[in-house]
Design a protein around this nucleic acid. Sequence first.
DNA 1: AACACTAACTTAGACGTTTAACGCGGAAAT
DNA 2: ATTTCCGCGTTAAACGTCTAAGTTAGTGTT
Lengths: 341, 341
Amino acid sequence: MNKTKLTLKDVAEQLGVSTATISNAFNRPDQLSKAKREEILAQCKKIGYSGPNRAAQILRKGTSNIVALVLADSISYMVSDPVASTFIKGVSSALQENGKHLLLYAGDSDSILNVVDFVDGFICYGQPRNNNLVKELAVSPKQVVTVDFDIDKKPSINIDNEKAAYHIACHALNEGDNVAIFGLRLIDSPSTCRIYDNALIDVESSIAHRRLDGYLKAAEEQNITISNERIWHLPESDRHFARQAARELLTSSPRPNVVLCMSDIIALELLHLALDMGIKVPEELKITGFDGIEEAERSRPSLTTICQPSAGKGVEATKALLNMISSKSTLPFELRVGETA
Amino acid sequence: MNKTKLTLKDVAEQLGVSTATISNAFNRPDQLSKAKREEILAQCKKIGYSGPNRAAQILRKGTSNIVALVLADSISYMVSDPVASTFIKGVSSALQENGKHLLLYAGDSDSILNVVDFVDGFICYGQPRNNNLVKELAVSPKQVVTVDFDIDKKPSINIDNEKAAYHIACHALNEGDNVAIFGLRLIDSPSTCRIYDNALIDVESSIAHRRLDGYLKAAEEQNITISNERIWHLPESDRHFARQAARELLTSSPRPNVVLCMSDIIALELLHLALDMGIKVPEELKITGFDGIEEAERSRPSLTTICQPSAGKGVEATKALLNMISSKSTLPFELRVGETA
DNA sequence: AACACTAACTTAGACGTTTAACGCGGAAAT
DNA sequence: ATTTCCGCGTTAAACGTCTAAGTTAGTGTT
């Protein structure tokens, strides 16, 4: 049918007008008469021209109106994380309101920044496993907003994780408690393990570490000591990792009577196992979560947890990004009356 | 620092070579000496040139090596659907093997095809709610592969839903059973309801209808009649919808003793509610699922379901897109006999 | 009648790459 | 010594669009 892809020039020739006019019909309605514009658009639809080639358009304009949302963790992690999807929804709606488009990138190759270097900015959700990606983001000339982790002096959206953790720990802990912590990505290991040495202390200040600080501070105030071997590293907020760790923990001796978990998913898995084992919650075992997912509310007993404003984070991140890339918006001016007129 | 973005020409001038050579250094290693290439790349890194501008590159080459995965349902649904995420993983890895990149598009605006018209092709997962999008896909000059639904003569990937449904229904049904069906998107309604009239009969042949056909065929063979008011429409494979429908169903009278569910998520929710209500599964109530997610295997009692090759579907869809295989392929499924039927 | 303004187009580069076609010097073949 | 060939680079023309500046005709102003 079409031997080759239609171009603006082809269309212009067929309609007997200049390419500029066609272009304007699509992009600047004020530059031509309404009648002509409508005729042109109708003709375009008829002959099968669906609009300007995006690559050419982006090249020429220098902007694409596309924002990339880089999901640090793999999709499979996202799946077990209802928090992420709510966040994405927030971003999505905020972008839509501003006429921008959203593209998701899942995975953590650092090449992504080059592959989609036509986007207007990046929202990066969660600390990427790939450290190179972080470095690339740090030096990217594009606008970058990070969420749930920090880069240099790039804007970032977050809650006060330390305070939140401190808060919930204060609620849960009493002097004399035997406390364990199910931490998330405290170290850079792909498998579950306990933190036997002090390796974690100097690791970058991720949200996990902030939360840990909060927990430990609260514990200290109750004169509770939590040795490193009571602190678990889970590589992901994943049911399987959680189940494994939970099994080990609940069969260890002495069994803790409080477990502070850095995600609801983990906490719930621990809860279920505990119930299966006939352990009474909270009488024999207190459990706290983190995030505030719905499932935590539905579970019996319902989970004590920290609710994050997930969608709100998405909206805020988007606003932060857009406020900086709004370049082309028309700014207000002001008359300053001097003495020469 | 950089007053403006670096370009190939700038770099060429600085290094005293032609733009073609720089370009070749990035794209065609065989076109220049190894020494020179490495020097160029090193210099580029040093002066902060991170590679060719993608928009220009795509424009010139006419290809981007990017494939768009269009997720029909909202991202929140996708992300909480283990089946979808496994599928995505399949696509992702297959693309990576072929040096292609994946971009996810979530939402169902038909404008997406234009917004990202630089991609090399579209994989469309699931029937979009937006019918315009389907039309756009149908006439798109780009490569299009559909999964779990069909468009015209575009290649599509699927399992034999009718056969699978027939299979599991045969396994579950006995003559005299009182059967209900929890269907997925049988009609075009955003809320849960029963199918009182015959409205669904002529609706497009979605996978849901194929499955329904399979169920009904098996029922017929056992001389079981399933009236339309025993067939439920759920708009999404969502826990909440499922819970609501389950509650209504289990309190209805006479209570069915078999429920055929079109997804594991739905089946599990029904199972949990039934157990909560003290209904014995499978003695008093048999339940079958569909998909074969892990949670179905872990549940107690474990769920009898159809295992789909979700990741395999992703791989096949990708291959089809990359023209490595030809058109319509129907993948195998497997009945996993659990304890619920 | 001359001038100024405006609406509605058109012209003519640029945007940053890629790549076919073309040198050019030197090694191998005749 | 001439030819052939090859490795290594360069030149220059696209790719499809946008937009500042220019043109024209028509409308109002003085």
